[in-house]
Amino acid sequence: MKNIMVLLLLFLLLFSLFACKKPTDKEYNVDKSSCNSCGECISVCPKDAIEYNLEGKAVIDQSKCVSCGECIAACPQGAIY
């Protein structure tokens, strides 16, 4: 089981790094395990594209985000990637 798991993960890692094309637009996301719900990103986002989800963590609404990157510079936890 462990060996299968390790091989599968290795495959996924290589696949997502090398077999995929990079899109022209950046997509920003929040790492929920690092987000402390401080709201800094919400107050700087010029497109009102961030809100808290069911777990109280910040989530970027990709339908409104314009990839300006302001939230990355504001996040004190480095939780936006």
Binding site: F15, S16, L17, A19, C20, K21, K22, P23, E27, N29, D31, S34, Y81
Partner: peptide
Amino acid sequence: KEFYRLANMVR
């Protein structure tokens, strides 16, 4: 019919 990589983050 193409795969895209959107994000890879290591901490």
